[in-house]
Amino acid sequence: MSTRLEARFRDCAAQGRAALVTFITAGDPDFDTSLSLLKALPAAGSDVIELGVPFTDPMADGPAIQAAGLRALKAGQTLKKTLAMVRAFREGDATTPIVLMGYYNPIYIYGVDRFLVDALTAGVDGLIVVDLPPEEDEELCLPALRAGLDFIRLATPTTDDKRLPAVLANTAGFVYYVSITGITGAATADPQAVGQAVARIKRHTGLPVAVGFGVKTPEQAAAIAAGADGVVVGSALIDALRGTLDAEGHATPATVPAVTGLVGALAEAVRGVRRQAAE
């Protein structure tokens, strides 16, 4: 039986296109607005959802996602509430994959065994934990895989052929290729370099490769979609959300539509790029 992630990437490949992977921060700017947005993403065109788990020290994230995490924490978001959000989403959507993305500390404090049970029960499909390298696989990666959760690893422009097998060894679901060096949202990706990097990674794995960091506009998404199995957009969506908040940082009636409108434009751009289904 295939996982939701396997099924979704397979369906997109069969349609001859890349998947659109969208990132939002759980609880940004508040629980109810965030849940409304989460529920609206699939209809807007999101194929896979990355749900950021707010953390006080998000060292891999750029200013936009850091600020989103702080807004969420200020509004009382916790890992427990993030799992509750996934459960509520699953009441109306049994097929869209959800990947939790964040850092190890909140999971460690929650308790690994308890977290894995609760995440699986809530309807989480995979995990991206950016501060656990392959050398720490016993901490969370291997227990997650045994529990039935995909553990998605990041590869970067500095991940050479010697390092790549270690990165890919226990990766499941898809490989997340970070198209630029540095933090999220800080620069834009070079589609030609990305295409070459994806091809290199695919020589080492049969998993889909999704490309993120530095993809902000529909045009950039389309360019990346030509050479990748998935296109990840995060900071641009967070920026769209932030631009609708009132002076106190609270949601307005424009908040959810601003994000879903951009997702719709990104989805249209990605779907307009035809790829070989056999890739």
Rank of each mutant, 00 (worst) to 15 (best):
T171W: 11
G264R: 05
M101H: 10
A278C: 12
C141L: 09
D190H: 08
Q220K: 06
K81G: 15
D137M: 01
A14G: 12
L70D: 14
L83T: 07
S179Q: 09
D61S: 01
A240S: 11
P133H: 07
M1P: 03
P58G: 15
D28N: 15
P253F: 13
I180R: 11
F151G: 00
G230P: 03
L79E: 03
E279F: 12
M59L: 15
V231G: 02
G173Q: 00
G206M: 09
L149W: 05
V231T: 04
A193V: 12
S179H: 03
D28H: 02
D125V: 06
E219T: 12
A251I: 06
M101P: 00
M59C: 13
Y110M: 11
Q77R: 05
A72H: 02
I152T: 06
I107S: 09
T78I: 07
T158W: 10
L37E: 04
P29V: 03
D239V: 11
A186K: 02
A226H: 00
A7F: 08
A265V: 06
Y108S: 11
T56Y: 04
V263Y: 00
G62D: 08
A26C: 12
L35Y: 12
V232N: 01
S179C: 12
I180N: 12
V194M: 09
G249Q: 07
A60T: 14
A226G: 13
A14E: 15
A199D: 11
V167Y: 14
I180H: 03
G52Q: 05
G16T: 07
S46Y: 01
V99H: 03
F23D: 03
E135V: 10
A166L: 11
A119Y: 02
G249V: 05
A222Q: 00
L154H: 02
D32H: 13
E138W: 11
V198Q: 12
F23P: 08
G243D: 14
A221T: 07
R242G: 14
G185D: 03
P218V: 04
H204L: 04
V129K: 00
G182Y: 13
V198L: 09
M101N: 06
D125M: 10
G148D: 14
V215Y: 05
A223D: 01
V124Y: 05
V270C: 01
S235F: 03
M85E: 10
P29W: 01
P97H: 08
V99E: 11
L168T: 10
K216M: 07
D113W: 04
D47P: 08
P134S: 12
F151C: 07
D113T: 08
E138D: 15
L120V: 09
D11I: 07
P257Q: 13
G195P: 03
L38D: 04
V21F: 12
D239S: 14
A197N: 06
A267G: 12
A155G: 02
L79F: 06
L241M: 10
D113F: 11
R203M: 10
T188F: 01
A72P: 02
E135A: 13
T156A: 15
D229T: 01
D131W: 03
G45I: 00
T188W: 02
P208C: 13
T171R: 02
A223S: 10
G261E: 14
A7H: 10
